[in-house]
Amino acid sequence: MTEYKLVVVGAGGVGKSALTIQLIQNHFVDEYDPTIEDSYRKQVVIDGETCLLDILDTAGQEEYSAMRDQYMRTGEGFLCVFAINNTKSFEDIHHYREQIKRVKDSEDVPMVLVGNKCDLPSRTVDTKQAQDLARSYGIPFIETSAKTRQGVDDAFYTLVREIRKHKEKMSKDGKKKKKKSKTKCVIM
């Protein structure tokens, strides 16, 4: 069974824990209790493949930012979460993405942009803004509501699919490099 290491990042209060708990335990946590770091595991079937999701729910508070490099190193894919009623959390996505790329030393890291709290009427981040940002990053965008469960499975499952595509691409690139290195030079 394939294991996928997913990391949920975003500013404090955007609903990272609520999304994760909704996926794992099928219930909505409405009281806000700032996370330092929590880890969850769940076995699911995605596109006919049974897999184990190892999900790291991270601290959004700035005082825990020193811990970010460590979990970013171990993560295979990242859910970059903002709240649709919090423009600052949307603007912060850029910083999370840049930090992930720096730590992973790669421009090509599996990510999904997630606009959470889409059940709320007080939207300050337009869907088109988020779609445009995701398009500019070359990553999928999904709106979710941890409260109603809308888009929750889709967000995590899409990230797994992005990781699969990335692994497939990397193995193809690896095979191309191996083929090239088999060419021999004969000096007579």
Rank of each mutant, 00 (worst) to 15 (best):
T2V: 09
T2W: 07
T2Y: 09
T2S: 14
T2P: 12
T2C: 13
E3N: 07
E3A: 13
E3C: 09
E3M: 08
E3G: 11
E3V: 09
E3L: 08
E3Y: 07
Y4P: 12
Y4M: 15
Y4I: 14
Y4G: 10
Y4V: 12
Y4K: 14
K5M: 04
K5D: 08
K5H: 09
K5I: 02
L6V: 11
L6I: 14
L6W: 04
L6Q: 02
L6T: 06
V7Y: 06
V7P: 04
V7R: 12
V7E: 05
V7C: 13
V7H: 07
V7M: 07
V7F: 06
V8C: 08
V8I: 10
V8Y: 02
V8M: 06
V8F: 04
V8G: 04
V8S: 04
V8A: 06
V9F: 04
V9Q: 04
V9L: 10
V9W: 01
V9K: 01
G10L: 01
G10M: 00
G10W: 01
G10V: 02
G10S: 06
G10A: 07
G10F: 02
A11R: 06
A11L: 15
A11F: 15
A11V: 13
A11G: 09
A11N: 07
G12D: 14
G12V: 07
G12C: 08
G12Y: 08
G13Y: 09
G13I: 10
G13P: 14
G13A: 11
G13D: 13
G13W: 08
V14G: 11
V14T: 12
V14D: 08
V14L: 10
V14S: 12
V14R: 06
V14M: 11
G15H: 02
G15W: 00
G15T: 00
G15C: 00
G15D: 00
G15Y: 00
G15K: 02
G15R: 00
K16W: 01
K16A: 07
K16N: 05
K16M: 04
K16Q: 02
K16L: 01
K16D: 01
S17Q: 00
S17G: 03
S17Y: 00
S17E: 00
S17R: 02
A18H: 06
A18V: 06
A18R: 05
A18W: 04
A18L: 02
L19W: 05
L19T: 14
L19H: 13
L19C: 12
L19S: 15
L19V: 11
L19Y: 07
L19F: 10
T20P: 03
T20Q: 06
T20L: 09
T20F: 02
T20N: 11
T20H: 03
T20E: 05
I21M: 15
I21F: 14
I21Q: 15
I21W: 09
I21T: 15
I21L: 15
I21S: 15
Q22P: 03
Q22S: 11
Q22K: 12
Q22I: 03
L23C: 13
L23V: 09
L23G: 13
L23N: 15
L23D: 07
L23Q: 15
I24Y: 07
I24D: 15
I24L: 14
I24S: 08
I24G: 10
I24V: 10
I24P: 02
I24W: 05
Q25Y: 03
Q25T: 11
Q25V: 06
Q25F: 04
Q25L: 10
N26L: 06
N26P: 07
N26K: 12
N26F: 06
N26S: 13
N26M: 09
N26R: 09
N26G: 13
N26D: 15
H27Y: 12
H27C: 14
H27M: 15
H27V: 10
F28G: 04
F28A: 05
F28R: 04
F28M: 08
F28P: 04
F28L: 06
V29Q: 14
V29P: 13
V29D: 13
V29I: 14
V29T: 12
V29E: 14
V29N: 12
D30S: 14
D30W: 08
D30Q: 14
D30N: 11
D30H: 14
E31Q: 08
E31L: 12
E31G: 09
E31W: 09
E31I: 12
E31N: 10
E31F: 15
Y32K: 03
Y32R: 05
Y32D: 04
Y32E: 06
Y32S: 05
Y32W: 10
Y32V: 05
D33F: 04
D33I: 03
D33V: 03
D33K: 02
D33Y: 04
D33G: 02
D33N: 04
D33P: 00
P34H: 06
P34R: 03
P34I: 04
T35H: 02
T35V: 02
T35R: 00
T35C: 00
T35D: 00
T35Y: 00
T35A: 00
T35P: 01
T35F: 03
I36S: 04
I36D: 05
I36N: 03
I36K: 02
I36L: 13
I36F: 06
E37G: 01
E37D: 04
E37K: 04
E37R: 00
E37S: 00
E37C: 03
E37W: 01
E37V: 04
D38V: 03
D38W: 02
D38Y: 03
D38S: 05
D38I: 01
D38Q: 03
S39A: 15
S39R: 08
S39Y: 03
S39H: 04
S39T: 14
S39F: 04
S39I: 05
Y40F: 07
Y40I: 03
Y40T: 02
R41D: 11
R41T: 13
K42L: 12
K42I: 09
K42E: 12
K42C: 08
K42M: 12
Q43W: 06
Q43T: 12
Q43A: 11
Q43E: 14
Q43D: 13
Q43M: 09
Q43S: 13
Q43R: 14
Q43C: 10
V44D: 14
V44W: 08
V44R: 10
V44P: 13
V44E: 12
V44Q: 13
V44I: 13
V45S: 14
V45K: 15
V45T: 14
V45D: 14
I46Y: 11
I46L: 13
I46V: 14
I46S: 14
I46A: 11
I46D: 14
I46E: 13
I46T: 11
I46H: 10
I46F: 09
D47V: 05
D47N: 10
D47T: 08
D47I: 03
D47G: 11
D47L: 05
D47P: 07
D47Q: 09
D47W: 05
D47C: 06
D47S: 08
G48T: 09
G48K: 10
G48E: 11
G48A: 08
G48R: 09
G48Q: 10
E49A: 09
E49S: 11
E49G: 08
E49T: 11
T50P: 15
T50N: 12
T50D: 10
T50W: 08
T50R: 12
C51R: 09
C51T: 11
C51S: 10
C51I: 15
L52A: 15
L52I: 13
L52V: 14
L53Q: 10
L53W: 08
L53M: 12
L53P: 06
L53K: 06
D54I: 03
D54Y: 05
D54H: 07
D54G: 06
D54A: 05
D54V: 04
D54P: 06
I55P: 02
I55L: 08
I55K: 01
I55E: 02
I55D: 00
L56K: 07
L56F: 02
L56A: 03
L56H: 03
L56S: 04
D57M: 01
D57S: 04
D57P: 01
D57A: 01
D57L: 02
D57G: 01
D57Y: 00
T58R: 00
T58V: 06
T58H: 03
T58W: 00
T58N: 01
T58C: 05
T58D: 01
T58G: 03
T58F: 00
A59F: 01
A59H: 02
A59M: 00
A59I: 00
A59Q: 00
G60P: 01
G60C: 03
G60L: 01
G60D: 03
G60R: 01
G60S: 03
G60K: 01
G60M: 00
G60A: 01
Q61D: 15
Q61T: 12
Q61L: 09
Q61Y: 05
Q61V: 09
Q61F: 05
Q61G: 11
E62S: 07
E62M: 06
E62K: 06
E62T: 07
E62V: 07
E62F: 05
E62L: 05
E63V: 05
E63S: 07
E63G: 06
E63K: 08
E63P: 05
E63T: 07
E63A: 06
E63F: 05
E63M: 06
Y64E: 02
Y64V: 03
Y64F: 12
Y64R: 01
Y64H: 01
